[in-house]
Design a protein around this nucleic acid. Sequence first.
DNA 1: AGTTTAAATAATAATAATTCTTATTAAGAA
DNA 2: TTCTTAATAAGAATTATTATTATTTAAACT
Lengths: 131, 131
Amino acid sequence: MDQSDIKYTNQRIEILEFLKGFDGHPSVDDVYEGVRKKLTRISKATVYNNLKFLAEKGLIKEVNVKGVSRFESNLEPHHHAICIECGEIIDFQSEELREYAMKIAGKIDNFKVESTDTNFYGICKKCKEMK
Amino acid sequence: MDQSDIKYTNQRIEILEFLKGFDGHPSVDDVYEGVRKKLTRISKATVYNNLKFLAEKGLIKEVNVKGVSRFESNLEPHHHAICIECGEIIDFQSEELREYAMKIAGKIDNFKVESTDTNFYGICKKCKEMK
DNA sequence: AGTTTAAATAATAATAATTCTTATTAAGAA
DNA sequence: TTCTTAATAAGAATTATTATTATTTAAACT
Ligand SMILES: [Mn+2]
Ligand SMILES: [Mn+2]
Ligand SMILES: [Zn+2]
Ligand SMILES: [Zn+2]
């Protein structure tokens, strides 16, 4: 949202760079380990703080799946296909589904919907081949 | 799913009864405190174990929101409206939305979708009035 | 430039949610 | 009844996250 007054520290830049280069939805630890290759002295608390900070500023997105926070730099509104075997998360874009859901959102009583997303649960390719 | 070989212990019965009588999506602690009124000596680990057990057997459903597990006895497929202020979860049923999503699910590559649900994020009535 | 101030960071302690371990109990089968 | 197994209670351990505090950084001011 309010991206005007953001101070771009080394730590924040590296976290953003890491997320842009990462194809997926890394956990805090993934980000920590990744960023540590460049900034060896970074603290895990700083990773937590800045991931939260950057998410609040709208520069990245947070997605919570099964209790753990994960992050991504894909800012396009999209849905997630989540493997019930291995937990893998795959982005899936469907503007028509989002529009359909937002239209239906008006039917919810006493609730002002701001956003919506749909989760698809199933088996990913890798897990399917394993059987 | 496989509800044939379920052993109905006192603990499991009370947990099921509590969930049936509870209007909402209680956390593990909510269930623990509630069930404790009947079974004063029940252990929290037993509540954890049996909530998970009952969810695996398909007798209840688990819904994870912002890192914490919540449970419900409403087995009808439905969606959730989640208040971004207070975390309140409201059930919302829309068979047409589920069908629409399942139809679109076929477009996801290399992924076999088994179920889907849509989350609606926004402000609940109570939080809206507070402003 | 040198000093002041506030924000950001590093290190680590504390907390919350959940899982694990182990001894005990309950219940069914032999 | 004795044997066997599953379920439970209690509490320790783990994991993810948040809070605390001293230190560092960097912009603002003199
Ligand atoms: Mn995504
Ligand atoms: Mn529900
Ligand atoms: Zn998988
Ligand atoms: Zn609310």
